[in-house]
């Protein structure tokens, strides 16, 4: 008995060793390319800022971290919350949540529609959804600008139809950011949703109708619980890049309605405050981690959540 167990243990430990050996290149890349820069960032966030950007090496300072959330008043030297930073963080969270909800509202029916097509047609629809990815993000954002600007398609159409007399100001508002991000991230919502709706067993839906469930009940009690993994995956895929969005608020927000990405960029450029930029970047990552932890918590509470 002991011999057998020993042999099994030896085989297992060899197996483990092999696995580590085989994944070493990937681990190395992850370590060098992801953990390394993160470590540099963490280090920079604890240094004093240089006069023209950069940091003063070896000079420890908590100023960067302090000014993420607090500020010293310019004139009377009193301490207070850095309301500007908090406003920007709040705007980023709010806009990212709104984007997630909007893409979900638009993406769910789209994904459902695709999954309802005959199998041979589905791929064409999925293909159509991915077409925007062929174009650079910047170009897509400028295209959005052409649609919503005062002389743009949308306003001109509304004026032509007589709905409004003068253009509605959409550019340079939070609405512009929301529309732009929804447009850009919609495919990221549709694809995972489609993947899980496609696997949905429609006999269950039919059974629901047979038992006199209303459409809403079927949706709430049968469809949504089953496609939940796709729903959550899509929401995460949209929410996280939205939090760090940079191009969209830069082009459509007009430099006035900043989001976190722009605030960070500003610290490395005109703000000349690299430690603060590094500290905000880490704060942003912490936010993402918290969002993911909440997801994992919820998922495990619901018995894994995976269909």
């Amino acid at each position: 008995m002991d011999k057998v167990r020993e042999a099994a243990m030896a085989a297992r430990s060899k197996d483990v060793r092999n696995r580590w050996f085989l994944s070493a290149p990937a681990l190395l890349v992850i370590f060098v390319a992801a953990v390394g820069p993160l470590f540099v960032m963490l280090l920079y966030s604890f240094m004093a800022k240089g006069d023209y950007g950069d940091v003063r090496f070896g000079e420890f300072s908590l100023d960067g971290w302090f000014s993420v959330f607090f500020q010293r008043d310019l004139f009377d030297d009193t301490f207070g919350l850095a309301d500007a930073h908090i406003a920007i963080i709040w705007r980023s969270i709010k806009l990212s949540l709104s984007t997630t909800i909007l893409t979900l509202t638009l993406g769910f029916p789209t994904a459902y529609f695709i999954a309802m097509r005959p199998a041979r047609n589905r791929e064409i629809w999925v293909f159509l959804v991915t077409i925007p990815f062929w174009t650079n993000l910047l170009i897509r954002t400028f295209a959005m600008q052409q649609v919503i600007r005062n002389e743009g398609l949308l306003n001109n159409a509304l004026i032509w139809l007589g709905v409004i007399d003068s253009p509605i100001q959409i550019m340079y508002t939070d609405t512009a950011n929301l529309l732009g991000m929804t447009y850009v991230y919609l495919p990221l919502m549709v694809l995972p949703l489609y993947a899980s709706i496609e696997r949905l067993d429609f006999r269950l839906v039919e059974a629901g109708y047979d038992l006199y469930a209303t459409r809403l009940q079927v949706l709430r009690r049968i469809i949504i619980p089953i496609v939940k993994p796709g729903l959550i995956a899509g929401s995460i895929l949209v929410f996280i890049p939205s939090l760090g969005a940079y191009v969209t608020p830069r082009v459509l927000g007009g430099g006035k309605n900043m989001m976190l990405g722009n605030l960070i960029e500003m610290q490395f450029g005109g703000g000349r405050n690299w430690p603060l930029g590094a500290a905000i970047s880490i704060t942003l990552m912490a936010l993402v981690m918290i969002a993911l932890l909440i997801y994992v918590r919820n998922a495990s509470r619901n018995g894994g959540g995976h269909a």
Binding site: L74, A84, I88, M258, L263, G270, G271
Partner: peptide, 12 residues
């Protein structure tokens, strides 16, 4: 330094 702090307050 003082001017850029004013400016940061304005920009944000």
């Amino acid at each position: 330094d003082f001017y850029s702090r004013i400016w940061t307050e304005v920009q944000k």
